[in-house]
Write a protein that binds this DNA or RNA. Structure first.
Length: 227
DNA sequence: GCGACAG
DNA sequence: ATCTTGTCGC
C-alpha cells in the first residue's frame, strides 16, 4: 500500500538536527475526535539484532480483534537509541513495513509515547503527522511526566502531567499488573485513545495490536543462536 | 553538578 | 531493546 508522506524530512541527521525537526513537527499534531469509529487497527513494533532491524505491523479488525493483515520489513540500523529521539531509529523501518500492507488501517497503535514526550512529539505522534493518520502511543514505561498510581482494577486510570499539561493517561489494562502509558499520537482525543487501548486489550498487559506486532518482529529476528 | 531517560 | 531459566504470586 502506497503512503503519502506529509512534511517529509531527512533521517540521516545529527542529534541537534533531529531535535529541531521535532520542534517543527510538534505544532502539527492534532488532538481531535476520530472521523469515525475505527474498524481496522494496526500495531507496529520493531526488534533489533546484529545491526539489523525487523519492523512488524499487524492489522486487526474490531471488535473481534481478528488479524486481517500483517507485514515484516528487515533492514540495517542507522540511528542509535537516544532517549527522546526513538522515532529517528524506528519510524523509517515502520513506514517500510506499512508499505507492504494490503489493508489500510484506520488507526495505528505504537509501542511508544505520543504527546507524552519532552517536545510533544513521541514516535506515535511523529508517525501520525508523517502519515496524516490517527495514531496512539501505548508505552510500557514513562518517558516524562508525573502521576498517581491508578487503582488496581482493570480499566483504572490516572492522569499523566508534564508540568501543568495533561500529556497522557496511565492505564491499568490488567488487574494488579503494571499500567501502560497511553497518549495521543495524532488525530484522536486522549479519551478515545484510552478507550481504543482498552477495546484492544484481552488477557494481556499490552493491547493485541502492539503485542502481536512485538511477537512478529521477534519471530522475524529468528531464535537466539548466539551466546 | 546530579539523576532520569519510550525502545 | 538485548543478555537469559526457573520460579513466585494473583
Amino acid at each position: 500500500m502506497a503512503w503519502t508522506l506529509h512534511h517529509a524530512h531527512r533521517w540521516d541527521v545529527s542529534v541537534p538536527e533531529a531535535i529541531r525537526i521535532q520542534e517543527q513537527l510538534a505544532p502539527l499534531v492534532r488532538e481531535e475526535p476520530l472521523p469515525a469509529a475505527p474498524t481496522l487497527v494496526a500495531g507496529v513494533d520493531m526488534s533489533v539484532r546484529q545491526q539489523r532491524v525487523q519492523a512488524a505491523v499487524v492489522v486487526l479488525r474490531l471488535p473481534d480483534l481478528t488479524v486481517v493483515d500483517q507485514a515484516i520489513w528487515r533492514g540495517p540500523v542507522d540511528f542509535p537509541y537516544v532517549p527522546g529521539l526513538l522515532s529517528f531509529r524506528e519510524v523509517p523501518a515502520v513506514i517500510a513495513a506499512l508499505e507492504r500492507l494490503q489493508a489500510r488501517p484506520d488507526v495505528i497503535l505504537a509501542d511508544a509515547q505520543g504527546r507524552a514526550h519532552p517536545r510533544r512529539l513521541g514516535l506515535a505522534s511523529h508517525l501520525g503527522v508523517l502519515l496524516d493518520l490517527p495514531t496512539v502511543g501505548v508505552a510500557k514505561s514513562r518517558l516524562v511526566g508525573t502521576h498517581e498510581p491508578p487503582g488496581p482494577e482493570k480499566g483504572a486510570t490516572a492522569p499523566l502531567f508534564h508540568g501543568e499539561e495533561l500529556v497522557g493517561m496511565v492505564v491499568r489494562t490488567r488487574a494488579s499488573v503494571r499500567p501502560v502509558f497511553v497518549s495521543v499520537g495524532h488525530r484522536i482525543t486522549l479519551d478515545q485513545a484510552v478507550a481504543l487501548t482498552l477495546a484492544c486489550t484481552t488477557r494481556y498487559r499490552l493491547p493485541e495490536p502492539t503485542r502481536l506486532a512485538h511477537l512478529a518482529s521477534r519471530r522475524a529476528a529468528g531464535p537466539n543462536q548466539e551466546a
